[in-house]
Design a protein around this nucleic acid. Structure first.
Lengths: 217, 217
DNA sequence: TTGAACAATAGGGAAATCCCTACTTCGGAA
DNA sequence: TTCCGAAGTAGGGATTTCCCTATTGTTCAA
């Protein structure tokens, strides 16, 4: 089996030392470098391209989120495994958006790390059980948000038509031309929409529509 | 330990028999009823309220998705564990939207079922490893879609701050008061935002932000 | 150290939006 | 039939937003 080249990024040397020790129990893993923050990582990457980066999130100077983004921008083939000491909802999302392949707690056991490395190396993803729980909670939140959208006001056909056009970004004049009525009439329909939804201007009407998923984008 | 009341819903009697047998190895689980499709389940529920429903997805008459929706509408406290023979992307999403607490493959092992029951009974979620893989793939798709959307413009801190407030529905005057600058200055920042995003007015700026998930709601 | 570039501030005038009022049409109830 | 309410139409005047211009302060490189 070929060796998997790994870089560790964490601001605590003790953690890096311990983690390197742990990784040494996998003969096919080779820790080629370390970095103590995002900036250092970017410098290191100029001369050393690993297969996998273990990336801490909380770090001085350039944190894990930013470092991941920049690293992937320059080297899109990098695989990044995010490491965190605790479950932070916000970071999870940011790291996923940054494009990491895996997200684990630092106190995972050795089998989990092995699974993660092999999975990621072969092009997959890995999320530890706690993360999955968080994700599924999130999904549930999404669901309940969708369910509780009731008692929406009743719009007339014309109002619905105009609301759609508003949410596509058209102004009063443009809408008027499109449906062959006076801009003044468009304004009147908008007033009715304001009243029914309880908002005070077009911007808030659009926000209302997106929030209640009356229109989709 | 109190007993956990369970109902099985599946159109194959053989599977129900086998599954009941499996569940009997948990002394704290009591299979109080069975149903062979969604309609039957709804009838059964009139006299029997379980803690957990094991719900097959592919069924005649009323399928698992519809049955889950209707059951949860009438009895919102029900916990539903969705069962499927294969990984179907589409059903997964539909079942999650319907509000199930767990989603598992039928050929999961006994330990997994135990985990799922206990997790769900105590108010949590459970998704088997294969489902998680699917979910994480989905997330990755979302991410890569986001990346290739377009390179988002770079906003200054002040611009980000104002964009947030705009998307919360505040007008120029209100924003000005909130951050202690002149309404005119707010307008200037908005102009910059217009230019950077390529839109022509506030409404379109809000639409842009929601579409590109720059702000979340 | 002196520009150059950029962020943040703000004013004046033009344009779009918002509020109030009013007219027409049409379908159902008295 | 007549009347009333709801939906669709539109105008005048106030308000807000938008565009152009301009000043100040900061950073960074020549």
């Amino acid at each position: 089996m070929e060796t998997i080249k790994v870089i560790l990024v964490d601001d605590h040397k003790i953690f890096r030392d311990g983690f390197r020790l742990l990784l040494q129990s996998f003969p096919y893993v080779d820790v080629i470098c370390e970095a103590s923050n995002g900036l250092e990582l970017l410098k290191v990457l100029e001369d050393n391209i690993p297969d996998i980066i273990f990336m801490d999130i909380n770090m001085p100077h350039v944190d894990g989120v930013e470092a991941s983004k920049r690293a992937l921008e320059k080297y899109p083939d990098l695989k990044i495994i995010a490491l965190t000491t605790f479950l932070d909802d916000d970071y999870l999302e940011q790291m996923l958006m940054a494009g990491v392949e895996a997200y684990m707690l630092k106190n995972a056991d050795i089998e989990e790390f092995e699974k993660a490395i092999l999975k990621v190396y072969s092009g997959g993803n890995y999320f530890s059980a706690e993360i999955v729980a968080l994700l599924s909670d999130k999904l549930n939140i999404l669901r309940s948000r969708k369910v509780q959208q009731m008692e929406l006001p009743v719009f007339t056909d014309r109002e619905k038509e105009i609301l759609e056009l508003i949410c596509k970004g058209f102004g009063n004049k443009e809408i008027a031309e499109k449906i062959f009525i006076s801009p003044k009439t468009v304004e009147k329909h908008k007033s009715s929409l304001f009243q029914k939804t309880g908002v005070l201007n077009t911007v808030n009407l659009v926000i209302f529509s997106f929030k209640h998923q009356i229109v989709d984008f």
